[in-house]
């Protein structure tokens, strides 16, 4: 056997099993979901293999005229999810930026330890981290006890099951996602440029706005996208901290599969989330490419 054919065989040996697995259990399910999003929902769950035109239309509030009237409730939920995810991204960025800056200026040994500490919560169980926030935000929770202790409020405030709770929870869960790309670009900052800016008489605010911020823009964009994507489709955080009051698109999808049993509509909603993610990634790639070619 020649070396060439031998290499071909060993390549096939490496690729065959994993490829078959991914084709069967990753690509097929996704294609099937796409097909389902165009099918007719069955009367008692499941589907009928017939084309149905209204799955995507219903998201926009279109009614099937027989049982429903125009109602943009699904669109409102989608827009709310976009808003809450955007708020989460903004909070994550604002909180992470100074911290990343602080850590990037540490001596190497301490810096590595600090980065280790930022990454560690990422590995801590999601449900445990959310549970901690339930304890804090509950009516009898720490935040309320603290506020009443200082005398800022006389009776417990409603924190749990509000937009605020959901944004706080998502911020807490996703902060390592924002932090790391942000840190990577802040660490690469050219100190000579900052010093030059000061030497030329720029104030701190000017230096930040004209030198530091533009140089770290790729990190901000990458951190924002990588945080926005899981935040948009999330349904664990809103169901633990938002309850029935703050419903996001993820909860809506879950309902279609587990209680409403309208799988085609749920698939259409999932496709909408995928489309939003795809648009975002394309925009980010375009921006990143433009940054590379000055």
């Amino acid at each position: 056997m020649s070396l060439r054919t031998r290499r071909t065989w060993s390549l096939l040996g490496l690729l065959t099993a994993p490829s078959a697995f991914l084709l069967c259990f990753f690509l097929c399910p996704l294609v099937l979901m796409l097909i389902y999003s165009f099918l007719t929902p069955g009367l008692y769950g499941g589907v009928e293999w017939e084309f149905f035109h209204l799955n995507y239309g219903r998201i926009l509030g279109w009614a099937d005229t027989k049982y429903e009237r125009f109602d943009p409730v699904f669109l409102i939920i989608f827009l709310r999810s976009l808003r809450l995810a955007a708020l989460t991204v903004l909070t994550c960025l604002v909180i992470s930026y100074p911290a990343a800056f602080w850590i990037s200026r540490m001596p190497p040994a301490r810096r590595n330890f600090a980065l280790f500490l930022v990454t560690l919560p990422f590995f801590v169980s999601l449900i445990v981290r959310l549970f901690a926030w339930v304890l804090i935000l509950r009516p009898t929770g720490f935040l309320n006890q603290g506020l009443m202790g200082v005398g800022l409020t006389s009776e417990p405030l409603e924190f749990l099951y509000t937009d605020f709770a959901v944004v706080v929870g998502m911020t807490y869960v996703f902060i390592p996602f924002t932090f790391l790309p942000l840190y990577a670009s802040i660490e690469k900052l050219d100190t000579a440029q900052i010093e030059a800016s000061f030497d030329l008489g720029a104030t701190r605010v000017q230096t930040f706005g004209k030198v530091i911020l533009p140089a770290t823009l790729p990190g901000i964009a990458a951190g924002a996208v990588i945080t926005f994507i899981p935040a948009l489709g999330n349904f664990i955080v809103p169901s633990v901290l938002g309850g029935a009051k703050v419903v996001m698109i993820g909860n809506l999808i879950e309902q279609q599969f587990l209680s409403a049993r309208n799988w085609p509509f749920g698939s259409a909603l999932a496709m909408l989330v995928m489309a939003a993610v795809l648009v975002l990634l394309i925009v980010q790639l375009r921006l990143a490419r433009r940054q590379d070619v000055p």
């Binding site: 259990f25 996704l30 099937l32 899981p230 999330n234 999932a270 989330v273």
Partner: peptide
Amino acid sequence: VLLLVPMIMPDIVLGIALLIFFIT
């Protein structure tokens, strides 16, 4: 690219796609 997709994709999408697939 293929191997990047599952990490970027929202979990819920993969979850329901698998559910549909296994049931079908």
